[in-house]
């Protein structure tokens, strides 16, 4: 499997977790005056879950995929926050 395929494979679960964390984030909801929700995924296990694909990539020595996964997760996290602030 190429580095790009590995990156995308690991990115998908990270994006789902990012979405869950962002959509239920209490401070974000409060700042946008949205009703608070009961968290479906508590923050600490959520962050651990978010980082898990990266740890696996590092553990298996897939360094290009690890860097790209990290870069994409961070860029898309920033983009997602921008979009959610726009929508609100």
């Amino acid at each position: 499997m190429s580095s790009a395929q590995l990156t995308l494979l690991c990115l998908l679960p990270s994006l789902v977790v990012l979405w869950l964390l962002a959509s239920q984030d209490p401070k974000r909801r409060r700042s946008l005056r949205l009703p608070q929700r009961q968290p479906r995924l508590p923050r600490t296990p959520g962050v651990a879950l978010l980082l898990l694909p990266g740890l696996l990539l590092g553990g298996f020595g897939q360094w290009p995929a690890l860097l790209m996964w990290m870069g994409l997760t961070l860029s898309l996290g920033w983009l997602l926050t921008q979009l959610l602030a726009w929508r609100a």
Binding site: D25, T81, L84
Partner: peptide, 29 residues
């Protein structure tokens, strides 16, 4: 981590204080 999803863009057009808050969020984020 607590503020990693917080962006109060809507405050940007609400006076000098709102603009400051939105700029602060944009930079920190």
């Amino acid at each position: 981590l607590r503020e990693i999803f917080t962006l109060r863009r809507w405050r940007a057009q609400r006076g000098a204080d709102g603009a400051l808050l939105a700029s602060r969020d944009a930079h920190v984020l």
